[in-house]
Lab assay of single mutants.
Amino acid sequence: MQRVNMIMAESPGLITICLLGYLLSAECTVFLDHENANKILNRPKRYNSGKLEEFVQGNLERECMEEKCSFEEAREVFENTERTTEFWKQYVDGDQCESNPCLNGGSCKDDINSYECWCPFGFEGKNCELDVTCNIKNGRCEQFCKNSADNKVVCSCTEGYRLAENQKSCEPAVPFPCGRVSVSQTSKLTRAETVFPDVDYVNSTEAETILDNITQSTQSFNDFTRVVGGEDAKPGQFPWQVVLNGKVDAFCGGSIVNEKWIVTAAHCVETGVKITVVAGEHNIEETEHTEQKRNVIRIIPHHNYNAAINKYNHDIALLELDEPLVLNSYVTPICIADKEYTNIFLKFGSGYVSGWGRVFHKGRSALVLQYLRVPLVDRATCLRSTKFTIYNNMFCAGFHEGGRDSCQGDSGGPHVTEVEGTSFLTGIISWGEECAMKGKYGIYTKVSRYVNWIKEKTKLT
């Protein structure tokens, strides 16, 4: 034993070699072989497995989906700052455009905790909710729209109204504003409101030439003092309507412009014939205590009207009353817009006519005020429907199939267009061939041609 100890002390290297040989010859039971080890760690190889990531292109799944990435790591994937920024906006807080917040056709661009709407022409605001041009839906104005110097929408209202708090709607500024039905039992019968379409306001006024200088022999019209197929109006439903009495009662109609003036057809009036105007009328054979009678003290036909040349060209006249009318729910003026808007309103496509005229061709006159909704007829169809001249200051309205029309005794009465609950004068009943005849239409004086003249002559002093 002493000898062994001496050998170990003198030859430590020998001992180490012996131990190493023993270990190498022993069977290893701690580690699995290569094949079995792979069965336990069965993990798919990654895209760049075996390579240094710093030297390969980034992978979106590896960089940002398996674990949260930084902007720089995302930049490695896209290799483009702009594309990385677009991805980053949604990656950080989701897609803010998912709810489609942009209105009126706006395009949404996502941002971090926010979004941006790219608005089409005519709109602005956070969600493109603000109209900035009158060309689109009248700028959301209830009545009139004008573009300011910086191309912003400025709404306005006709006389007797003021802008509401929203700067879009119009509200009454006087007790009985024009064009409004205020009798409670008839307010439910107000005709369907007309909503502004998209309009090209630059070209809204037709490029028409008034044929002022045409000389033409007097034409022989049949029954051209021209509501057939209409309905009984309720008291106060058309408070701007008046009836004219002269040699015979209810020979023509008219509309209240203001307390002192009536507008009617020029062919209705004769110099030297006494005319009485009755406002607030409903049943011409009954006294309903809503009527107001006034005498006409002055007749002003349009300066281009000449019955000797043509009885229905420039067929418009103004009547001055001896005493002002007292405005109330049964006696209310009709609204008159400017030339541009009167023309736009007419193009809405349908209007209402009213009167006490004959209820059928050569038949009896109506006792109760009649009204009828009539569609506008395109000019080409209008011209083809008659052998008589249709001037540019006239328009056609009615039904091709016949059966409904204005008729004798309705002449001078109103053709009105309702705009968001307020009625505007767009025409004056003038003439036609018979009444409600198939293929024939009622012919009306186009008020847009005469609004400046009306307003100039009827100013209240």
Rank of each mutant, 00 (worst) to 15 (best):
G94T: 15
H34L: 06
L163S: 03
Y330F: 13
E231S: 06
T426A: 00
V451G: 03
I390D: 08
F123G: 00
P177N: 01
C97V: 00
T381W: 06
D111P: 01
T426H: 01
H282E: 03
C28S: 12
V227E: 14
H400A: 15
C157K: 00
T29G: 14
I214G: 07
N310I: 02
E129W: 01
L189W: 10
R404N: 06
R180V: 04
N306G: 03
E35V: 11
V199I: 11
G349H: 09
P172Q: 07
C268R: 00
V30N: 15
D111T: 06
T458V: 05
K89I: 06
E54Q: 10
D33M: 10
V419Q: 05
V257K: 01
V30R: 14
C252L: 01
N304P: 02
N36D: 12
E420Y: 10
E340Q: 13
H282C: 06
C145H: 02
N343W: 03
N151L: 09
K68S: 07
N393K: 03
P301S: 08
L20D: 02
N147V: 10
V374M: 09
G21Y: 13
T133H: 12
Q185V: 14
P333D: 01
M8V: 06
F87G: 15
P175W: 04
R379W: 08
N48L: 11
N80H: 09
I7G: 15
T85D: 10
R191G: 13
E259C: 04
M394R: 03
E433Y: 06
D322S: 06
I284V: 11
D338P: 13
Q237P: 07
L346G: 02
E208M: 10
R162A: 08
V374W: 04
Y371I: 10
S406N: 14
I262S: 00
D110K: 10
K168G: 04
A337Y: 00
L383W: 14
N100T: 10
V227I: 12
K457M: 15
N213D: 06
T133S: 14
L383R: 14
S448V: 03
K459M: 14
Q96A: 15
F121W: 08
H314A: 06
F348W: 11
N147I: 09
H34Y: 12
T225K: 14
V269T: 06
V243Q: 07
N104R: 03
D200E: 09
F55S: 15
E73P: 07
D150G: 13
Y371M: 13
I390Q: 09
I344G: 10
E231N: 14
V273S: 09
N310L: 03
H267W: 03
F251I: 13
G272L: 05
G122S: 04
S329Y: 06
N42V: 11
P414H: 14
V242N: 01
P197H: 12
S156M: 10
C407F: 10
Y305E: 01
N166R: 02
I344D: 12
A307W: 07
I299L: 05
D150Y: 08
Y305R: 11
T417L: 01
V447W: 01
R180S: 05
E281I: 14
D95C: 03
W240L: 00
P44E: 15
E54N: 05
D223G: 09
T389K: 07
L189K: 12
G409F: 10
I214K: 12
K168T: 05
C157R: 01
I15A: 06
L60Y: 09
A317P: 01
F55W: 10
W356T: 05
W240T: 00
V416S: 07
Q370T: 08
R298C: 03
P301D: 03
K440T: 13
V374A: 11
V374E: 01
F55C: 05
A279R: 00
C155E: 01
N5T: 12
F388L: 13
D223C: 05
N306W: 03
M8G: 12
G398K: 06
H34C: 04
G409I: 09
R3P: 10
E142P: 03
C108H: 00
G355E: 04
E10C: 14
R449P: 15
F360M: 14
S329E: 15
V243H: 06
E61T: 11
C108K: 01
E116V: 03
E285K: 10
K459T: 15
Y312D: 02
A207C: 06
Y391T: 12
N283R: 12
K89Q: 12
N258R: 02
I275N: 03
E54M: 09
E286W: 08
T461N: 15
L376H: 06
T287K: 06
S217R: 07
Q2S: 07
P333S: 05
G13W: 05
T264A: 06
T81C: 04
E73L: 07
T186H: 11
A164L: 06
T458M: 03
F424R: 00
V183M: 11
I112S: 11
F424E: 01
R83D: 09
N135I: 08
V451H: 03
L24C: 10
V56M: 08
L319I: 07
I429V: 09
E79A: 14
K455P: 00
T264D: 01
L425Y: 00
E433N: 14
K293V: 15
R75V: 11
V331G: 00
I309N: 13
C108G: 00
F388S: 11
G403N: 09
H303C: 04
K45A: 12
G272I: 07
C178N: 01
I40A: 15
A250L: 09
G398S: 04
K146W: 08
E259G: 03
V174R: 09
Y91W: 04
V416F: 12
G179H: 00
V77T: 14
R373L: 06
M394I: 09
K459I: 11
C108S: 00
N36G: 11
V243D: 02
F121A: 04
A207L: 11
E116Q: 05
I256E: 00
I275T: 05
I284S: 08
S49G: 13
